[in-house]
């Protein structure tokens, strides 16, 4: 599986619970003064940066292949 696919699956896995939780008013992400919204924001930030690092990693692997040839 390509890293892009893995990332889109990860993203969906993380987003889906959010949308389910959002159905009721007394849900998890709104509990304790909506602190878990902040946690979700940090998670997205982390995933975004990780995505970029994975992409860079792929590019470097290609360069290594070319050098070997």
């Amino acid at each position: 599986m390509k890293s892009n696919q893995i990332f889109s699956i990860l993203f969906l896995l993380i987003i889906c619970p959010f949308t389910i939780w959002a159905q009721s008013d007394t849900d998890f992400l709104r509990s304790t003064g909506k602190i878990y919204t902040v946690v979700a924001v940090i998670a997205i930030l982390f995933l975004g940066i990780m995505y970029f690092i994975f992409r860079l990693d792929k590019k470097i692997t290609e360069i290594e292949k070319q050098i070997k040839e």
Binding site: A22, L29, K34, T37, V41, I44, G48, I49
Partner: peptide
């Protein structure tokens, strides 16, 4: 490119926040 990545992160995080606010 990195600025676009940051912009996308900004929109995604803002979206999640907006959903609960």
């Amino acid at each position: 490119e990195v600025a676009i990545l940051f912009g996308l992160i900004g929109i995604a995080t803002g979206s999640v926040w907006a959903k609960y606010t």
